[in-house]
Structures are given as C-alpha cells and as structure tokens.
Amino acid sequence: MNLPARASQSHPPALTNGSGAAAILSAGIGVFVLAVLAVAADQLAPVNAALVFYKPTGVLSGVTTAAILVWLITWVAIDLQWRKKTVAMSLMSSVAFTLLILSFLLTFPPIADLF
C-alpha cells in the first residue's frame, strides 16, 4: 500500500531561519510605523498635511502608503542581509510581537488621544 509522504517528525531544518525572521520583524515594523504615523498625523498639523496623498481619502492615504513602503523596503533590506543566516529567532519574535501589540494599542483611539 502506498502511503502519502508525510512530514510530521522534526529533522534538522533545510533552510536557515533568516528569511522568515526578516519577514516577521519587518511586518512588526510595518504595523508599528502605520500606528505611529496615524498618531502623528492626528496630533501634528504639518504631518497631517504632508500625508494627504489622495484628497478624497485624506490623511489615511498617506499614513498607509508610507507605512507599506517602509514595510516593504525594510523587508527587502533585512531579507538580503539575513537570507542565508541563522538569527536569534526568539529575540526577533519578541521584538515583532512587542511592536504588533504596541500598534494595536496606539491605534485604539482612547490611547491614541493621550498623546
């Protein structure tokens, strides 16, 4: 009887974790930049004015476009550095999740309004 190939057991990794770590860290940075820009645009008139990329959508267009650009550029830059390396994944993961949690908090209006 032919059984399908299964990968259920742990083996030495075939790939280094650098590329995955770069993707996770840059996603954390991307959402954090979005949250910081959202707060900055809400509190600082010059930032607000500078981030209106598309008038009908208002400042949201600039906040999200800028954050996406930072996310993608950061991702490519870190990936190029780490692609073939093994990095301290627990540290990268902790940083990424800290940024993610801070981003959820910073975008929550009662907290964003404290600044």
Partner: peptide
Amino acid sequence: IRYGRDLVNHKQLRAAVLGF
C-alpha cells in the same frame, strides 16, 4: 511558501507565524 513543511523544524518561526 518559503518554508512549507520545513516549518515543522523551526519552532519559534512557526509560533510567530501562527501569532501573526
């Protein structure tokens, strides 16, 4: 897409992916 089944061997990477 990059790691596929090899994620089985990257415990912390797997946890981070599930978390996100």
